[in-house]
């Protein structure tokens, strides 16, 4: 098998990798935002509840979570597809990390920003939405991109739930051709081909976000 054939074979699993990634993001982004903001603002039992939820998803090994949800939920009468379980587990795990950087970014923001917003008569939610979050999210772009890449790489684990993603395809091809060196090198290359554009996109986002913040020396 030629290199190109191997890559073509691996990319037959690209659709699963892509779907799990996109669905995973659909879990990760809202979870990170809501959990991070709630942890920043809440007190008492609500804060405890949010913290427990975040820690559960963040501190458990992915592979254990995947198996636990995929193989034990049916015992409770809940049948979820491999893609559904994979996206949920990966998404909430990454979202757990993301929530911490949202909280950190909100905490790092100068208190004067909130005070200025309140002093103008804006409500607390408006201050969060129009003043704090836009600044926090701008600061977090590099972290977000990092987590997105983490998520893409994490999807390799769904091959263990018998989903035919890129990693699963590589294993299949490897079992047919007995050429692990070339096949797994190709798999490495395949993930690089998928992840690198995300890095470039992240740099573009950072450049755009920093456009308004040029220092006075650059005028």
């Amino acid at each position: 098998m030629s290199f190109v054939d191997i890559l073509r074979g691996i990319f037959e699993g690209f659709d699963v990798t892509l779907i799990v990634t996109l669905l995973g993001l659909a879990y990760a982004i809202p979870f990170a935002l809501v959990a991070g903001v709630l942890q920043h603002f809440s007190q008492g039992w609500l804060r405890l509840l949010v913290t427990i939820l975040i820690e559960f998803w963040r501190s458990s090994p992915l592979i254990v979570l995947l198996y636990a949800f995929y193989y034990s939920l049916p015992a409770f009468g809940i049948y979820l597809s491999g893609i559904a379980v994979g996206a949920m587990v990966l998404g909430l795990n990454i979202g757990g990390y993301g929530s911490q950087s949202i909280r950190a970014a909100l905490q790092a923001l100068d208190r004067g920003q909130v005070e200025a917003g309140l002093a103008l008569g804006l409500g607390r939610l408006d201050v969060l939405r129009l003043i704090e979050l836009p600044q926090a999210i701008t600061v977090m772009i590099p972290t977000f991109i990092n987590l997105a890449i983490q998520l893409i790489k994490g999807t390799a684990l769904v091959s263990l739930l018998t989903l035919t993603d890129m990693t699963f395809r590589a294993k299949e091809i490897s079992q047919l051709s007995y050429d692990p060196v070339r096949i797994y090198s190709s798999l490495l290359l395949a993930y690089f081909i998928v992840c690198y554009p995300v890095t470039i996109f992240g740099r573009y986002l950072e450049r755009r976000a920093s456009e308004g913040r040029r220092s006075i020396s650059e005028i």
């Binding site: 100068d110 004067g112 920003q113 005070e115 200025a116 917003g117 002093a119 003043i131 836009p134 600044q135 701008t138 308004g212 913040r213």
Partner: peptide, 13 residues
């Protein structure tokens, strides 16, 4: 009630 702060506190974004 308008307020002006020592460190301006303009919204940088």
């Amino acid at each position: 009630v308008g307020m002006v702060f020592q460190h301006f506190n303009l919204f940088p974004h």
